[in-house]
Nucleic acid binder design. Sequence first.
DNA 1: CAAGTTAATTACCGTTCGGTACATAACAGC
DNA 2: GCTGTTATGTACCGAACGGTAATTAACTTG
Lengths: 193, 193
Amino acid sequence: MVRPREFQEDKALEKAMLLFWEKGYEATSLSDLTTSMGIQKPSIYAAFGDKKELFEAALRKYIHEHATFFRRHLQSGSSVKEAIHTLFQEIVAQAYQDDRSRGCFCINTMVELAPHEPRFEVLTREHQLYLTVIFLETIERGKKAGELQPHINAKALANTLVVSLIGLTVMMKSRPDRTFVDQSVETVMQLLD
Amino acid sequence: MVRPREFQEDKALEKAMLLFWEKGYEATSLSDLTTSMGIQKPSIYAAFGDKKELFEAALRKYIHEHATFFRRHLQSGSSVKEAIHTLFQEIVAQAYQDDRSRGCFCINTMVELAPHEPRFEVLTREHQLYLTVIFLETIERGKKAGELQPHINAKALANTLVVSLIGLTVMMKSRPDRTFVDQSVETVMQLLD
DNA sequence: CAAGTTAATTACCGTTCGGTACATAACAGC
DNA sequence: GCTGTTATGTACCGAACGGTAATTAACTTG
């Protein structure tokens, strides 16, 4: 270590994440990245590798924060039904308050890259599985507490909640009337009864 | 009309559709298109306009066929529950038998282009709405026939079925164990009871 | 068969792409 | 303050991008 970095690696990665998240992999150029990250191309390559490695680092950062977001909402002490309901409502509210809704970076990557790049197929599948497990634990907790009926198939329900969240997130990309989305959330919540 | 076209416009558009469907807009180059369509760039421009217009034509073709596929399944004379169930199962089966599952071209476009291009936001939203109406009519038919319970909120249920289909289609892009998907289908079907 | 019109082919346009060689600048240790 | 090492900025690389001008070929009509 003789000359220190003049930029903060994590701040730069955060900027890259936001850009890839909003525009996707192909539509984001290195020129866009240098502008947004505030550093030149050789610095990017020295710190993160090539474009695809930078993208993967950005996605991993997103996935980590996204998982934390889910844990915070679902592993709270309150009612299980309420926690799940609130999580869904918050995701919807965020999408509609943000003018240029980026949706979910992981979902965007599943659509754009997973079918052609095994590394992203695996990465996104594992995150999806992780979210399912968090839902599963939450449902089991609700069953033990007597809040959810014991005959509920926890695994199947957890899967379905993840499927519904993916569907809602993607649907909102075309900005449908909010009524549609809110109605769907309420309908999915019936599965908890 | 003095010199006739040497290629069939619809065959060429079909090729373009398959390519855009599989690779998306940005990742498909004009060079890819000329190879696959079997015609040169000037012919593409003469027949379809620029890349984005060709993409839109391809998407419109897909949407038209996709809508027909849904109508055929849902407006059949048989049981409503069975028709919906079969539709879901067929979509899942197709995704898993195809090695390189392209998913749904319309959904892919919602994710890649809708947030940045109003024309595709509108186009995909309208198709989504159209599918919802087909589901709605099917559900109403089931209610009138006494197959579905009268207290069911048909609009909300139709929305939710579309949301679930989107979620399933996107989820399958990361090739999860099929058990997850099948379980979700069965769980969603509970909403019809 | 000649004239007029349109399609196809070739070759090319300027621009931007992802990526890098090279020179310069900033630090640590002696 | 010198030396060695690493980071930065500049300038550039070949390749590929989307798109087009210009030529050649194929047909219909008179």
